[in-house]
Every structure is written in structure tokens, then in C-alpha cells.
Nucleic acid binder design. Sequence first.
DNA 1: CAGTGAGCGAGCTTCCGCTTGACTT
Length: 779
Amino acid sequence: MQKNLVIVESPAKAKTIEKFLGKNYKVMSSYGHIRDLKTNEFSIDLEHGYAPQYVIPADKKKLVTELKKEAKESDQVWLASDEDREGEAISWHLYEVLGLKPENTKRIVFHEITKNAILHAIKTPRNIDINLVNAQQARRVLDRIVGFELSPVLWRKVKPALSAGRVQSVAVRLIVDREREINDFVPEATYRVTANFLLPDGQTVLKAELNHRLKKKEEVYAFLKSCENVRFVIDDIVKKPVRKSPAPPFTTSTLQQEAARKLGYSVSQTMMIAQRLYESGFITYMRTDSVNLSDLALGTAKEAILETYGERYYKFRQYHTKSKGAQEAHEAIRPTYIAHEKIEGSAQERRLYELIRRRTIACQMADAELERTTISVAIDGRKEKFVATGEVVTFDGFLQVYRESYDDEGEKEQENGLLPPVTKDEVLLRKDIVATERFTQRPPRYTEASLVRRLEELGIGRPSTYAPTIQTIQNRQYVVKGDKEGTERAYDVISLEEDVIKEIRKTEMVGADRNKLMPTDIGIVVNDFLMEYFPGVMDYNFTASVEKEFDSVAEGKMVWTDAIDKFYKMFHPIVEKAFAVRTEHKVGERELGIDPKSGEPVFVKIGRYGPVAQIGVASQDDKSVKPRFATLMKGQSIETITLEEALRLFDLPRTVGEYNGKVMVAAIGRFGPFIRYDGKFISIPKEMSPLTITPGEAIKLIEEKRLKDERRFVKKFDEEPEMEILNGRFGPYIAYKGKNYRIPKTVVMPEKLTLEECRTIISGAEGKTDSKKKTVKKK
DNA sequence: CAGTGAGCGAGCTTCCGCTTGACTT
């Protein structure tokens, strides 16, 4: 029989707040939105001013009934969802659905979860801001219109079950555009000239680089020639102090980036681990775009720094969120108790916590101070100079705790540390001068985290959607995360040593990539199609420009349905037009030529299940005339495949030969190329092709597989037939009731494990969370 | 993480933002 009911968005938050408010307050959570448009219908009434048709999702019904009951029994209901557009809408939906009355409903907001902040909020309630709510409705309705009108166009023109949307389609475009930039990239070569000089002591070496790059080989020869018999003199020594400041505290996006670079976590992994830290009360909320720190956090960070590092290392800093739309609904991501150096939890949780803690502390620490020394060496008779730069940390400051990582690390030239002591006009002895051919770098492919950074820069997507968006574009097979083989490239090294000029040719590997996002054929075709018909929605500034409209709505300067009407009147006719375009062929289809055997045309296109080659066309009249199909191989693209390559695909399945009286057949299946032999399937490694594999190679694969299968069974238990010890790709493991368990490294001889020991291993593993992977849906 | 193994003429599909679910017989 409480007097007051407070409703917040997150249950973890509810738990903490309840402690501050005492007996007269009950705090409950709405678990985000409690109402939304129907999931499988358009749900916007175009005839009646774009009226949204909201429903309570099935999994929220129980919760809503409970909230209703509690609200009825309370004298006063406090709607305490976040202070941003979505939060305001959540409060409004609660108000409507729970049937609340104005006289006993109050809207409150607080920016940090402390007793003071909450008590202050209770003292200063306000009403629901209907303009802000309407801005959210406009956002929601626009996204539904874009998504549910574009997707069906793709089903018709490209492939069933595809999707398009304001956020995901632009994310795909970024990746497609980048891949094209990479394809079109022409590296330019220049010569980078470095020299090693001996100081007068005859021992110390000074390494310096020429202050400009040479373009042509003839220039290099001329330059080296001119260096043969000249004096090199220390021309200038400049020392300059440099300061470096710490990075701001973490937001969702920067946390995702740093966790990827420093800990190797994927974007969704980071979010799952952070969620657990949040629920355990170790960190503040993990979905935020704010870099703001509460006074409490600033104070405790100061204490921790003063205690551990001393006054010299402390500096008060306040960060402000730059992005315009940011509402500062939450704080930055930080430890709840900064004094806690370590936490209990899995190794992953501890590492992420430590990262967050270090970043938070570092941002309240003093600048690092460095001294940068630049030494220039004059060449008699030339105006170019050799330059050596070195940086020495004179005061480490925040660097003692945290060093930010960058994506292009390792590509940068190594910087010198301390330079040897030299004096002006000192004459140096030339050891050698080396000119190395260097090439300009192609733009980098996106990683999950760098894509998030780019989306955030463009103001597209929100902290809660970065990870799901990246999942969606991979689920739709617009984009794959994968590796790319590098190619070999030759470069010249021309050197002057003693009085001899020598030229040698070396090779290096370039362009190799690991775990990067690359567009698929489907992604490219869909992107190009959308770019042709819907350039407005695909524009990188589309979100920014509609956000401006939503802002006007939020400020009460515009009626939300007018904003939608303006957009719809422009957008819908284009959808109609895109539908109406009669195409003989599928979007993205390409005719390669004529099959010499049948005289029929050969096409490549996006088929029902992905890229496919086709010989002949279906006949309208004669149903028996059927085209033939063959799936493209991994690495082949409908953009680049040739007629010959396409025709070869129709050689599969192909009889490779016989072995022990049974045939070996090569083909491509769901998981790539394989050999079928004696009712078994053996994968063909990617160095070989099913088109060219020889009987000898196939037999070798079959024998290897046979050997592996024999070694697969390590041990069985008669008393427990479901318990088995097996050899897998990653060594021995225990299989039990459809689940697999790792055998600890401390076990040297797995075959000696007893049933009891196996059980202990399993019960030990059960305690931890095991990420269950969903198998590909069949049928 | 731990083994899988097609098809291409009609059944269904889809958006973006909030938030964490977890059962009865």
C-alpha cells in the first residue's frame, strides 16, 4: 500500500533508486517502450493524418497489467524515464496506457543516480512535453514509412526478404563506397630518403630523413650522386615543448572502438559484457552519447588520483558533448565506484572494467609533457635538408594510466625517442643514404567499430542501435566480415654506401586485411538500386536534415504530421515509380555472352539464394524449357565474373575419378566446395578448387579425413553413453547431451579422464554463461 | 568454436529505438 509509484526505464536503475526513496515509494521499470506500431503491418493510417496504430506487444502485456494495478493503488505516479525524445514518448505512452490522471501524475527527470539528484527531481516536477513526444512520433512514423515502403520494392526487384531503412541502407552505402574507392585507388610511388650519419665521436649514429620525397628514379640517382663528396653539417637544433591531453570519458561508440582495438572484442560482445557490468552495479549505463561526468564522479576521481599519483597528476576537466542532438540523458560510461580498482567477474568483464576505469581516471589527469627535438642537417650545395625528430616524455601525466589507440597504428613510421647530443655546425660523416620506394596507401576498409564511429559522426543511429545495425546488415548478407589476401608488390631500394650506388628490388605484401567489412554482390546491387531511385534517403545528410525537422517539432514550431506529409508527398511517388518500372531482367543482372554449346545466353544475377549464373531463359509458352543454374563460388562476383568462368561453374558436380572402386565427385554445397566419396563429405580447402582438383589431391584429402575420423573418438563411458571425449578442430573436448565442454589445459592426457572428472568439468563450465549459437534455419 | 553438405516460377519477408526477457505439464 505505497503512496507513490515511480516508473523508470531500466530495472537496474529502479533497484538503486528504490534504496534512496524510502518506504513511501515503490519503483518499477517499464523495460523501455511499452507500446509500438504493430510489427507485421504498416500501422499508419494514411487517410487520417498519419495516425499511428499502437499496440502493446505480447511480451509486455503482463508488465502493463502489473503497472496498471500498482498505479491504481498509488496516490501519486512519477514518470521518470530519460529526458530525451524517446524517454518523453515512453512517459506519454505510460500515461495513456495506464489511464493516469493529470492531477496525480508528475513527470520528473534526473541526470545522475544519487540521492540528492533524485530528491531534487521530486521537488521540481513538470508536465509531459507533448512537443517532444510528437517529435518522437514523427521519427517513428518516418522510419516505418521508409522501411516498409522500400523493403517490398527490393523483394520485387532484387530478392525476397531483403530490407532497407534510414540507418541500415546508409551503413551499407558507406561500405560499398569505400570498396569502390579501394578498387579505383591508384597508388603513387615516391622515394623516401633516409640517411645514417656518424657523429664526430665516430660511434654514435644519427638517423635522419630528407625533408622532401623524390618522384623519379633519375632524381634519386642525381641526388645520391650529388651526395657523394659533400659535407654534412648540423644546421639547426630546435627544442619545443609539446603537450598531450587525455581523451574524454567513454560513450557507447568510443567504448566500442577502444574495446575492439585494445581487447579485440566485437561491438556486440562489448555491449553484452558492459550490460553485465551495469547489472552488477559496477558501471553506469552503457548506452549513452554523453561525455558528462557527475560531480560525484569528478570528486571521487580526484580523490583517487591525489591518493595514488599526487597533486601534480591531477587536473580538473569538464567535457561537453559536441553532437548537437545529444540530450545528456545519461552520464558518460564510468565505474560507479571509481575507488574500486578491481571487480569480481569473468576475465572479459574484469578487462573491460579496467579499461573503463583507466579511461575515467585519465580524463581527470594532467597533460603529458613532451619535448620534441628537431635536428636538421644541411647538405653542402643543396637546399634540401635531412631532418631527425625525437620525442621524449618529460612528464607522463595521464599517460601513466591510459594511452588511446588508433586504427592505423603500425602503418605510421616509427618515431625516434631520444636523439643523440649534437651541436650546431658540427660536421657529420655520411655512413649511408638509402632511397626506398614508398606508395600512397589505399583507404582502409571499415571494421565494425570504425563503421560505428563514422555513423556517429554522421549522426546516424543511436547508442542502442549501433550493435544491432551491424548485425542486421550482416544478417541480410549485404556485408560480410572477413579476410582479404594481400598481393605482392615490388619496390626499389637505391642506396649510396661508401662511393657505390646500388639498386636492388625487394617485394612486400600489401592490401591484406583481417576481420574487415566488405560488401557482397547482394549489398552492391541493392545499394546501386537504392542510389538510383532514392538518392535522397541514401544521402549521408538525410538523417541530419530530418533531425532538423524533428527539432522544429520538439520546439513547437512545426506540427509533426506536416513534417511527415511533406516527406511522404515527395517519397511515395518515387516508390510507385520504382515499382512500375518494367524490367525484363532482375536488377543488377548482367549478360555475359552466348554459351557455345547450346547457343543460349549466359547471365549472372542475384537469385533467390544469392548470386547465380544462368544459361537460357524460361519460356512463357513451353513450360518444359527450363534454364540451368549454377551458384557462384566464394570470391567470385557478378560484377567481375567472365563468360568462361561462369561456364565452368556448370561443370559441377564433376566426377574427379575413382578410388578403391568408388567414384569421387567434386561439388559446391552450403558450406563451400566438397568432395563426395563413399557417402561422406570432405571439405575442399580454399587453396584448391573443385573445378581443378586432381584425383591425387582428392585421395589425399579423403585419407586425411579418414585418419582424423579415426582419431575423433578418444573415450566412451559404458555407464554413461551420452558422455564422450572427442578430438575436434581445437583439440580434445567433452561432448555431453548435445553440448560441448572444453577440457582445461592442465589435463595432459584426456584419455585418462574418469567419468567423475568429466562431470566436474561440466558442472564447472555450467556456472558460466555459454553463448548459444543459433544454427542456420532449415527448410 | 568442436560439423554441416540446395535450391532458383509465387507460402514469407521489412523499419528504428527504448529495454531485458526465461515456461508449464
